[in-house]
């Protein structure tokens, strides 16, 4: 019973623990709606120092500076896209964890669906051709020719007396 309680407690503690975030209490905005916007934006922005973390996750000083900057701009009435544009103008599109859909990223966005559709089509054609060739087999090949029948008869006849002896 004790063990059960202990394991339940650990499970509850683990599931209840919030995901680790780098946002410090002093950064959080008073307005919860604006703070939620800031969090959503921060998750989309790359920390240029750690590169594979968002500024929401990163403990790097620059990430903190950028989190504060994002909140400042939201507080001063910027829209989400204005905040994003502000950072893209300074750090380039590399700052976006999710690349924009634009002419120079067409290949990036369209390659996976194209590969999927292309592979599906190839598979489709292949299986169709296989079943087609199966149906198209010359029916005469399914039956033995007279010559073969005669040969088979001879072999069976030769086999039968052997077994008797």
């Amino acid at each position: 019973m004790k063990k059960l309680f202990a394991s339940l407690f650990i499970a509850a503690a683990v599931s209840a623990a919030p995901a680790a975030h780098a946002v410090q209490p002093d950064e959080i905005m008073v307005d919860p709606a604006k703070e939620a916007r800031a969090r959503d934006l921060s998750r989309e922005l790359r920390c240029m120092v750690c590169q594979n973390q968002s500024i929401d996750d990163s403990d790097a000083p620059l990430a903190r500076d950028l989190r504060l900057l994002v909140r400042e701009r939201i507080a001063s009435g910027d829209s989400d896209s204005q905040v994003i544009d502000f950072l893209v103008a300074r750090y380039g599109e590399f700052v976006l964890l999710k690349p924009r859909f634009s002419p120079h990223t067409l290949l990036l966005w369209l390659l996976p669906p194209l590969a999927l559709v292309g592979g599906g089509l190839a598979l489709c054609f292949y299986s169709r051709r296989r079943s087609n060739t199966g149906n198209a087999t010359d029916p005469s090949l399914l039956h033995l020719t007279e010559e073969e029948e005669a040969k088979l008869e001879r072999l069976l006849a030769a086999d039968a007396p052997d077994k008797k002896t």
């Binding site: 120092v49 620059l62 500076d65």
Partner: peptide, 13 residues
């Protein structure tokens, strides 16, 4: 002092 000017320059390190 606060790194804000360097953000204008796109500095990340």
């Amino acid at each position: 002092g606060n790194g804000r000017g360097s953000i204008e320059w796109g500095v990340y390190g």
